[in-house]
Amino acid sequence: MEEPDKNNSAISLKSFLCCQEYSKLCCLGKDSNLSLASRIAKSFHHLFCFTCRRFSKQINVIDGACKKVLEKESESCKLSEDAKNRIKSLMKEE
């Protein structure tokens, strides 16, 4: 899916992005195909802005955490034994 049209004011592209625009493109690039102009502008900003490079890393960590969060078992988030027994009984009735 292409990125939002420039004319709908979602993203306004300029030759030099500010950090706020970079942050949008950085996130948008994970969910859509950025245009060539956007990718170039983003890469250029990435090259020269230390803070945005750190932002980009942090966003990658967040996406990585999403892939692991369900695998992590949690004592505080378990189906209770009562609920399990109730569900088993209902299933056996089927």
């Binding site: 996130c27 932002f55 966003i59 967040i62």
Partner: peptide, 16 residues
């Protein structure tokens, strides 16, 4: 799709 993109952007910014 614009709704989705904006929601995802805000979510990532808030999580960060």
């Amino acid at each position: 799709s614009n709704n989705v993109w904006v929601i995802l952007y805000r979510s990532r910014m808030r999580l960060r």
